[in-house]
Design a protein around this nucleic acid. Structure first.
Lengths: 225, 225
DNA sequence: CTCCATAGCATGGTATACCATAAGACGATA
DNA sequence: TATCGTCTTATGGTATACCATGCTATGGAG
């Protein structure tokens, strides 16, 4: 009988896919500044592909919220909508909360082990102090968390939210005074999940987002953006 | 000084925009069946535009979740992910809940009046019994609700979620045994908002989603999908 | 010196041509 | 008759050519 593990997933080899990933990374890593124009033809040269490809990628990034079309001019790297950061953090608190709760309720021991691994990697990244590493490890941890919570859609949403506050996050995610507190908060989440305390896990997850939110607000207030 | 009302928003006249709206509507209104292939060249003929336009539109619809690419074959109308309906309704309950709560807390009287109007229109639509009308009026009511709650992003998310369960909603939204209960539930939401009771408003909104959820589950169980 | 007009060009919008590939049909052979 | 191989073609992927428009720079006139 057909074994699912036999299925080979064809490598996503189209130029479009590659270009999309490349551009997404480039924007998230600030190789383009927020607000910077993304003129199509120069992009073609840089990426080494045709305008068809570039335009399709641009459309996709646009609906993802990474790029915005400026009427009259063309596409540009989206600028974070500072007026909506409160809402975004509120939603993150909500979503990460229910994920942690569900995790505490129904994660398998195996999944909890995966979470431990992800957390360990995150600590390493924090120790290394490389921002990009920390971002990646954080994302990975939450990905595992949402996976274990069986909240795939919520994860997609959170990813989309994080895109919009990428700039803020990059500033706050490893602000030094945040690091120790953040580590403690993460451990609190894990402890609650491990001991199967849904309410505690939810509270801990929310608390973590809320402190991040506070730091972000501070950063905004200082006008460093 | 510049009056905002003077601003003319240039008609979004590009073919792409038009085609996008057209296709979105067509899919949402089931002029294409879920799962139906969307072959590019025939689509060009039907829409009267070139493949460039069609492909860009397809990309956009793909990231919106209305279209999915089937490897080996091409694009097709997305089929609702039945395994994730529980999560979707859970998220809707959460989001519509906080919107109702925020509304009860901080909506202006003017906004509440708008809500009343929207609700009246919704009742009319229900009376008319035209499914498309009911969907539109429902969407409108919630749009006003989220606007009054100043939760624009949450609204975008809810819209995205609804896309994924469009089929289910169209089956359940005016199921006759739901109508009276639904009307009562909506009034409960409005009453709580009017009397400025955030917790009650949140609970009422959640309850409304939860009954819809129950009906959807029933519909699924009967295998009518 | 300033302001306006015109022309050129930068840039996005649209159409089309060509290519690669995978799916499906058809036939040959056992 | 069934299975396998090959061939055709349907279809998506990519590149490019052309067009329309709006911005900008430059020069002339007041």
């Amino acid at each position: 009988m057909a074994d699912a593990t036999l299925r080979i997933d064809r490598p996503a080899k189209t130029l479009r896919t590659l270009a999309l990933e490349r551009m997404r990374e480039a924007i998230m890593d600030f190789h383009f500044q927020p607000g910077e124009r993304l003129v199509e033809r120069p992009l073609c040269d840089q990426l080494g592909v045709s305008r068809s490809v570039v335009r399709e990628v641009l459309r996709q990034l646009e609906t993802e919220g990474l790029v915005q079309m400026i009427p009259g001019h063309g596409p540009a790297v989206a600028k974070p909508d500072l007026g909506r950061t409160d809402e975004i953090y509120e939603l993150r608190a909500l979503l990460e909360g229910i994920a942690a709760k569900a995790c505490a309720t129904s994660a398998t021991d195996n999944q909890i082990a995966l979470l431990d691994t992800a957390l360990a990697k995150l600590l390493e990244a924090w120790a290394s102090g490389v921002p990009a590493e920390v971002m990646r490890a954080t994302a990975r941890f939450y990905e595992v968390l949402f996976e274990a919570a069986d909240k795939r859609i919520a994860w997609e949403i959170v990813t989309g939210l994080n895109v919009r506050i990428n700039q803020l996050r990059s500033m706050t995610i490893l602000s030094l005074n945040r690091r120790d507190a953040a580590i403690a908060e993460m451990h609190a989440i894990m402890d609650a999940i491990r001991s199967r305390k849904p309410e505690a896990a939810e509270a801990a997850a929310r608390r973590h987002v809320e402190t991040a939110w506070k730091i972000a607000r501070e950063a905004l207030r200082l006008g460093s953006l």
